[in-house]
Design a protein around this nucleic acid. Structure first.
Length: 468
RNA sequence: GCGCCUCUAGCUCAAUUGGCAGAGCAUCGGACUCUUAAUCCGCAGGUUCUGGGUUCAAGUCCCAGGGGGCGUACCA
């Protein structure tokens, strides 16, 4: 171990070499010497000749080592698959037409402990892939590519928002009051303050405080935490983009949303028409806009109104299979009916608009439709992708909404929002008309990389800790 | 939470109705100067997830526990 180098001067990557020497003829030599580094993925002994495949961040390049020119040839031939090498040599193309580096100097940079996964089948055991992601990333190209795409997508998102003068900020992750979404939080404790804290379930309420403070175009891309079940679409910690745009309403917000997502699809996949789970999704703008009640009417021929008798709505809800709880009011019942009868049939992209006020405690009431709010969710590839609304700006009404939530909480809704008086105080200082948006970044990556499980777009998904 | 499925060598997988636990790759030893999943010869490699039970005999059947996957519920 002591002879392993502390640094290494790398001058080329596999992809760059393959690109720049694509025209080289079989058996040609270039006289050009380069140094590459990566892991040895394959090795083929041929007596006094050894071929190896070296993989770096960009791809693979063949190593050509002959006993004549390769120093310590026997040691080179005895390298293990997975060993991390630095290699210097001349760029050549073999007689059989494979671009190669003829090794004239080499160093082991690190050893692979243990034996390497099967060179053909790789590593398929999901548990091992997630717990030892560093192996998965080497062995499974698709896995590595998904994370590269994820990074490119987040980066493209930042650029796009920056071009539109949105300011990126960071707000607290430790919250004294968990708010901004309907979800159960993780709880923790601050010793010095001797106070209960919660990992944030959304940055929303802090970002709107910043809008009050004059940041009229602001966003955050950050981790949020929800103490709920796990599935192919849910990880307890996940990444959200939230943005707030003053002077805009939810109509502006839908335009922004569809343009952003169409742009990202273009950037990542090269097209606004993508394939998800074997089915086509056309993300080109504009997307369809449909109100929730219209969709219910279309799918199950039920004309529902928020003024309908609560018990009547409850009966309809039960008829379509909703388990109605006592604290469900008309708005919650309409949402439940929508989710039961419509949502699974939507493929999208479509903006489902005008959510009931009762289930939207932070949304501004619809300017023309009492009982509803100016809120939308985008359904893309049959899944909820984001949530946006004209923000509720009235402190008095906000307090009333919080109190209604508190009543639900008392009635047994563990996910109802607690009252946040400090947030109400901020609203008292003036939130201008504002549009707000939340996008689940992980799900957007899944969509654009045609990935069926969130664990394949989260580098280290939450798993049960290993025993002992 | 609940339901179903699954766990065998480092990796990928076999093992007929319950009847000596195997192969390929990797590792180790050997042959080979144009291979590319190289090939060929050889050695070694196991608490069949754990603990009980049934049986002359359990990888296989039963019970309990653990890990993982999928579905469902809550949610993005």
């Amino acid at each position: 171990m002591t002879d392993l180098p502390y640094r290494y001067e790398v001058t080329a990557t596999a992809a760059a070499l393959n690109e720049s020497h694509a025209e080289l003829g079989d058996g040609d030599e270039t006289g050009l010497f380069v140094t590459v580094a990566g892991r040895l993925m394959l090795r083929r002994g041929q007596g006094k000749l050894v071929f190896g495949d070296l993989q770096d961040r960009t791809g693979r390049i063949q190593l050509f080592a002959s006993a004549k020119v390769c120093p310590d040839f026997h040691e080179f031939a005895a390298l293990n698959l997975g060993d991390w090498l630095g290699v210097t040599g001349e760029i050549i193309k073999t007689k059989r037409g494979e671009l190669s580096i003829r090794v004239t100097a080499w160093d082991v940079l690190a050893r692979w402990g243990g034996t390497f996964p099967d060179k053909w089948h790789g590593l398929t055991d999901t548990d091992a892939r997630y717990r030892q992601r560093y192996i998965d990333l080497w062995v499974n190209d698709g896995s590595r590519q998904a994370f590269v795409d994820r990074s490119r997508m987040v980066s493209a998102t930042r650029r796009w928002l920056e071009e539109r003068d949105f300011l990126e900020v960071e707000t607290p992750i430790l919250h004294p009051i968990p708010g901004g979404a309907l979800a159960r939080p993780f709880e923790t404790h601050h010793n010095a303050l001797d106070t209960e804290m919660f990992l944030r379930i959304a940055p929303e309420l802090y970002l709107k405080r910043l809008t009050v403070g004059g940041f009229d175009k602001v966003y955050e891309i950050g981790r949020v935490f929800r103490n709920e079940g796990m599935s192919t679409r849910h990880n307890p910690e996940f990444t959200m983009l939230e943005l707030y745009w003053a002077y805009a309403d939810y109509h502006d917000g839908m335009e922004l949303t569809e343009q952003l997502i169409a742009h990202l699809a273009e950037q990542i996949t090269g097209s606004t028409t993508i394939t998800y789970d074997g089915r086509e999704v056309d993300l080109s703008t504009p997307w369809e806009r449909r109100t929730m009640t219209d969709l219910i009417s279309e799918h199950v021929q039920l004309d529902l109104s928020i003024e309908m008798d609560r018990d009547e709505l409850a009966k309809i809800a039960e008829d379509v299979g909703v388990q109605v709880k006592g604290y469900y009011g008309p708005g919650k019942l309409i949402l439940e009916i929508y989710e039961k009868t419509v949502e699974a049939h939507l493929w999208g992209p479509v903006f489902v608009t005008d959510y009931p006020k009762e289930v939207s405690p932070l949304s501004r009431v619809h300017r023309d439709k009492p009982g509803f709010t100016e809120r939308f969710e985008a359904i893309v590839a049959g899944r909820e992708l984001c949530n946006g609304f004209s923000e509720l700006i009235d402190p008095v009404e906000q307090l009333a909404r919080f109190e209604a939530q508190a009543a639900d909480r008392d009635a047994g809704d563990a996910e109802a929002m607690p009252i946040d008086r400090d947030y109400v105080r901020a609203l008292e200082h003036g939130l201008p008309p504002t549009f707000g948006l939340g996008i689940g970044i992980d799900r957007l990556v899944m969509l654009l990389t045609d990935t069926q499980t969130i664990r394949d777009v989260v580098l280290f998904p939450t798993l049960r800790p290993e025993q002992e």
